[in-house]
Amino acid sequence: MTSPSPTSSSSSRLGALLMAPVNALMRLIDVPLRGLQKSTGIGGMAAFFLAPNMLIFGIFVLLPLVINFVYSMTGGTAFFLAERNFVGGEQYARLFTCQNYLDPMSCQEDAFWTAVGNTFWFVILQVALMILTALITALILNRDLAARSFWRAVFFFPVLLSPVVVGLIWKWILQRQGLLNFILFQFGDTEPYTWLTDRTWTFAATIGVSIWAHMGFYALILLAGLQAIPKDLYEAAEMDGTKPARVFWRITLPLLAPNLLVVVVLALIRAVQIFDEVYVLTGGGPGTSTLYLTQYIYETGFASALRNPGLAAAASILMGSVLVVLTLIQLGIGRKNENKGKR
């Protein structure tokens, strides 16, 4: 047994000195807390400790949600609730007045249904492509590459950029006199292509740009999952002469499933909420081809001279409902997986 060195004993004295005020404070708090526990029981103590969080949640999440719902039941152009008239479900009825939901132009609020359709296709395509690229990137970055840390930083870098910066960078690249047309011109294409005024290209651009901007984040989550898979499983498969594709389907993918689920849910929610970089890149145009739900809500509530806060609130309640459903699905699948694991 060795005696403690003079350095370690002096550092422990310093630690005790630093902790003295904390300990004194704890002793001070201990007395009323013991009293409280005696009178309320263990359950009461839990409520006591949860109260500050619940208060913050109530003020900053629940209350705005309720106020938003109340707004959706009012009409007029005024912003103050007191100056608005109760119109019941009129705003919701207006949103749902439609001859054919698949043809937005047959709806009273055609822009809303256009935004719903655009958002639906955006979510389907963007999430699928995002997960695919993030998975491929994570698989590559998990290999023994030269300068692996550098490549990981390269793929993660766009995540650090502000969405406005992302939008502007790609606007400069894709506009008529932008970098892409300049490069194409060098290869002999004389007519500049109008990437941002063509409906199909612009829609594709919003998907591509959002994948570029966020893929690094999801790749990082998947990379963490890949690194957590025990190496001996791969060694055993190698010894058995299992083909790489079979290893991927039978070992990598099943063990990566929890991470993939997180990525799918996060990517879905983020995709439904898409706004900032697209707003800067295309402004929702050409026409309304890249008008997504959040921009519709923003324009309807705040930006347009035809603004209607009640209608915007109703649309945001509907969008919030979709997000709640997505979250519940995530929780359900998560619990199912957890139960499977326990069995």
């Binding site: 109008t194 941002l196 005024t197 402004g283 929702g284 145009g285 930006a303």
Partner: peptide, 22 residues
Amino acid sequence: SKDVWVSAAGSTYRAAADDFIN
């Protein structure tokens, strides 16, 4: 010019001054 008019949704303002200046 189509670019200025289709480059946004809604009533967003866009000026074409830069095209003239260039």
